[in-house]
């Protein structure tokens, strides 16, 4: 196939509708950036839930020797096997608990170190302030209903061997709530803008088909294939999509670098780990939720295909 005509047409097409193409590109740019931010927030929420437990969980810490809580439950020092069995039974038998998971001293210690809750200086050196032994074992208890934990908390509070019950549901549910609002907010905003971009694409094609109707008429008459006739339109759409996606992925990279790596992750410790470049990659190439590459291509090429079928039909 001789493509010279196609590329000449592409060039004149891009120039002829320059302002329309710019409008499409800018709309795509903003909407795709928002969609990408939404994806990053979603992944951040997942990471935080893994690390902190989600709003359905409470943490029951067991006593250690010389427990810092000064809780009378810990008068006997380190929790005994007997006490622990009793605690396990209480959790298993409680109506408000869905399930539970035992977290050993080692696991808890490692998690805390990984997430930065213990500063590295406190565990290194010849005389570390914090050691595995001085870290409490515990249970993550998953609730049936995040609103109902009073029964199990009061039951466990009275048991020997229970030092502290960390109930971070309130704080966490606020954080997750904020993330949800941000995520859906950016997706809804992005959705409207993507709709606008799609309508602009439709308009651009309508105008381009109108401007080229003489050529198209002749091409049909002399037997040019439908694909050949549609190709300049598809390439125009492809170019705008690629530029829009390119700008958006640049904006997202800037957000990831300055906003997260050099910003939030340094100042907001408790949400660590923060999304990293692999999450950025997912916001670009992901399938579900669709990354901005897929979104950008789909939203420009699909309307173009549908419309050119209409205008270019033999």
């Amino acid at each position: 196939m001789q493509l010279r005509y196609v590329f000449t047409e592409l060039r004149t097409g891009l120039r002829r509708n320059l302002s329309m193409h710019l409008a499409v590109i800018l709309t795509l740019f903003v909407s795709l950036s928002l969609a990408g931010v939404g994806i990053l927030i979603q992944r951040q929420a997942d990471l935080a839930a893994d690390q902190l437990g989600d709003e359905l969980k409470i943490l029951v810490n067991l006593c250690i020797d010389d427990d810092p809580s000064n809780n009378p439950n810990c008068a006997g020092g380190e929790v005994t096997a007997e006490q622990q069995k009793r605690i396990q039974e209480e959790i298993d038998g409680n109506d408000e608990a869905e399930s539970s998971r035992f977290v050993s001293k080692e696991e808890g210690f490692e998690n805390a170190r990984d997430s930065g809750q213990i500063p590295e200086s406190a565990v290194s050196g010849p005389n570390p302030v914090i050691t595995v032994d001085s870290w409490p074992a515990g249970y993550w208890v998953t609730l049936k209903n995040p609103e109902e934990a009073d029964g199990i908390i009061s039951a466990l509070e009275g048991l020997d061997g229970v030092s502290v019950i960390k109930d971070e549901r309130e704080a966490l549910s606020q954080i997750f709530g904020i993330m949800k609002v941000l995520k859906y907010g950016s997706w809804i905003g992005s959705g409207f803008l993507l709709l606008a971009a799609m309508l602009q694409v439709t308009n651009t094609i309508r105008l381009a088909a109108l401007a080229r109707r003489r050529e198209i008429g002749i091409m049909r008459l002399v037997g040019a294939s439908t694909l050949y006739i549609a190709l300049p339109f598809l390439l125009e759409a492809l170019v705008t999509a690629i530029v829009g996606v390119g700008l958006a992925s640049g904006a997202l990279a800037a957000f990831q670098y300055w906003g997260i790596e050099k910003g939030l992750s340094e100042h907001v410790q408790f949400l660590r780990p923060w999304v990293d470049w692999s999450d950025y990659g997912a916001s670009l190439y992901g399938w579900f939720p669709p990354g901005i590459l897929l979104l950008g291509l789909a939203l420009t090429l699909i309307p173009t295909l549908l419309l050119t079928r209409k205008y270019v039909k033999v």
């Binding site: 001789q2 005509y5 002399v222 040019a224 006739i229």
Partner: peptide, 11 residues
């Protein structure tokens, strides 16, 4: 030439 180009004839 247009009638030839668009059906893929060689230059």
């Amino acid at each position: 030439a247009f009638a030839q180009q668009v059906i893929g004839k060689s230059q």
